[in-house]
Simulated assay, not measured.
Amino acid sequence: MLVLLPPSETKAAGGDGAPLDLDALSLPELNPVRRKLADALVELSADVPASLTALGLSPRQSGEVERNAALWTSPTMPALHRYTGVLYDALDAANFTAAQADRAAGRLAVASALFGVVRARDPIPAYRLSGGSTLPGLGTLRSVWRPVLEPALNTDELVVDLRSGAYAALARIPDAVTVRVVTEDASGARKTVSHHNKAYKGRLAAALATSRREPSTVDDVRSVAEDADMRMEQAGETELVLVTDH
């Protein structure tokens, strides 16, 4: 099973790993595009105003441009610890046992505008690039990534796709299991969750990543979620609905 997570705009600073080495990352067939995008970001960072515009940042976020300037020289850390925010707080990978961390390393991957997809233990630097960005001379990231990323993600194993829209657009995975989070009030009325969506998906990802069982079907995913006290319903052949009460 592969659980594909969305990235986060925020990244943890620092790290104690060697500088970026594309050959140390999973899916080496993605390396030509990774190198092209990394070089483009470094080149763009020489023009701070242009970088801010291309990346959709404010002048107060110019430190993000400095991160991009140092892509090839700054320290790295495992991807699962580089990404931060609500989903990753709920995932709580720092508190996995050694056995759970090993299972998670084999099951979790993170969608990335810069790297396409990285596995949990892939060493990456801090950077700033969003799925909806357009880099000068390269066009949209969807046009850059789809031709190489879709074949790379064409796998016989079960894929649970928790990506957000901009990252799902970078590569379509037709048979992937998707999860929609809804809230149900006392009258039974439901609406799609926005504020807590990432937290629930982080909890689900943690349950799937650390389960002693190896989920291989939609029913298995639902069962693991229910064992973790999450209410899950099947809405279609490959769509699940996670129902919350707040």
Rank of each mutant, 00 (worst) to 15 (best):
A199F: 03
V182D: 09
D227A: 05
V218H: 01
V181E: 07
A111N: 07
A168T: 07
A70K: 10
E150M: 04
A99L: 08
L135T: 02
D47S: 00
G56L: 12
T192V: 12
L108S: 13
A24F: 02
T134K: 12
S26A: 13
L162D: 06
R121H: 12
P75F: 03
Q234P: 01
L240S: 10
S74C: 07
L153C: 12
G56N: 10
S194V: 13
G132P: 00
S8V: 12
A54V: 08
R180F: 07
A152P: 05
E9T: 04
V182P: 05
V193D: 11
S211A: 15
D245F: 09
R119H: 13
D47C: 01
A38R: 13
A94V: 11
N68V: 01
L141N: 01
A93V: 15
A79H: 08
V160R: 01
A50W: 14
A176N: 04
L114Y: 02
T53G: 04
R67H: 09
A69H: 06
L2W: 14
R172S: 14
D229M: 11
P6L: 00
L4Y: 14
A205R: 08
G14V: 13
Y88A: 00
V243W: 03
R119M: 15
A93W: 13
A235P: 06
L204Q: 01
L170G: 02
Q100A: 13
P125V: 06
G236F: 06
R60E: 15
R231P: 02
D23G: 15
A79E: 08
P123V: 02
E9V: 11
D245H: 15
V86P: 01
D122I: 00
V117R: 13
P7M: 10
A228Y: 03
V65I: 13
L80V: 12
P7K: 11
T210W: 05
T134M: 08
N154I: 01
R146V: 02
V243I: 15
A13P: 04
V181K: 05
S112L: 02
L242A: 14
L135S: 00
D21E: 15
G106K: 14
P215A: 13
G85V: 12
V144W: 02
A176V: 04
W145T: 03
T97K: 04
L162I: 07
S51K: 08
V148M: 12
G165K: 10
T76V: 10
T84V: 08
G131P: 03
D102K: 14
G56V: 09
T134Y: 04
D102A: 15
A120C: 07
V182M: 03
P174N: 11
N154L: 08
G137L: 03
V181Q: 09
L41Y: 02
L208R: 05
E237H: 14
R103F: 10
L37T: 06
A94Q: 15
Q100K: 01
P123Y: 05
A126I: 00
D39C: 12
V33P: 01
Y83P: 03
G116D: 06
G63V: 07
